[in-house]
């Protein structure tokens, strides 16, 4: 019999875009809720933002099954941590744990593109950005996923982060107010949705600040 079927393909790309911005006393993380495969939309309402701790969130795009597995692993690791230390993991610790968890599968990677947000030891907002195999960096803002290439240059232009080469090191947090940051996020997603077929349907924004956690939704183009 002639082989007419494609061979087994263990990875898929389900698309999606994640953006995070850190301020002095807040952080914002946002992701669209579309999940696609090829030219098909699987669902228009799938959350890509996962709460790892009270003050630590992860937004992930890429291969959904790997994203889910990664969330479960981190959730389980964090549960054990809480039992052993009687406290929640700090955001920088969670950032390293995520890096190690990704690198542990270096030769059969989690095909996921993550941003992690929370507060550092001084209580300042922080964003960690990753590649699929665990390289990571602490930044003031970041975009990951299918629309990152459209969004990242806009953020660079509008948020003007100090060069990481400057000495002494400059603070990476953005000068924007919380409301301004949310407006920027809404704008860059509206723009990315115009050109990226994997981004759209709805925008989920989660804001962390002194009052705790807040969730907002905004509509995006559905075509």
């Amino acid at each position: 019999m002639t082989k007419q079927q494609a061979r087994f393909e263990p990875y898929d790309f389900n698309g999606g875009t994640c953006v995070a911005i850190a301020g002095a006393d807040y952080c914002v993380v946002a992701a669209d809720t579309r999940m696609s495969t090829g030219y098909n939309i699987l669902t228009r309402d799938y959350s890509k933002i996962y709460k790892l701790a009270d003050k630590c969130l992860m937004a992930s795009s890429g291969f959904q099954a790997d994203v889910r597995a990664l969330q479960k692993v981190l959730g389980a690791k964090h549960l054990i941590y809480q039992h052993q230390h009687n406290k929640q993991m700090s955001c920088p610790a969670m950032a390293r744990l995520l890096s190690n968890t990704l690198y542990y599968k270096r030769f059969f990677p989690y095909y996921t593109f993550n941003v992690l947000v929370g507060f550092d030891e001084e209580g300042k907002g922080c964003v960690y950005t990753y590649d699929a195999v665990g390289s990571y960096e602490k930044v003031g803002y970041s975009a990951q996923g299918s629309g990152a290439k459209l969004i990242m240059p806009v953020l660079d232009n509008q948020l003007k982060s100090p060069s990481p080469l400057l000495l002494p090191a400059q603070d990476a947090v953005t000068p924007l107010s919380e409301a301004e940051a949310i407006d920027v996020v809404k704008d860059v997603f509206a723009s990315a949705t115009e050109r990226d077929i994997y981004t759209g349907d709805k925008l989920e924004i989660v804001i962390l600040n002194a009052d705790g956690m807040r969730r907002e939704f905004a509509e995006l183009r559905k075509d």
Partner: peptide, 10 residues
């Protein structure tokens, strides 16, 4: 659920 584990509710 798909053969590679992608899953969702609708």
């Amino acid at each position: 659920v798909t053969m590679i584990g992608v899953n969702f509710e609708e």
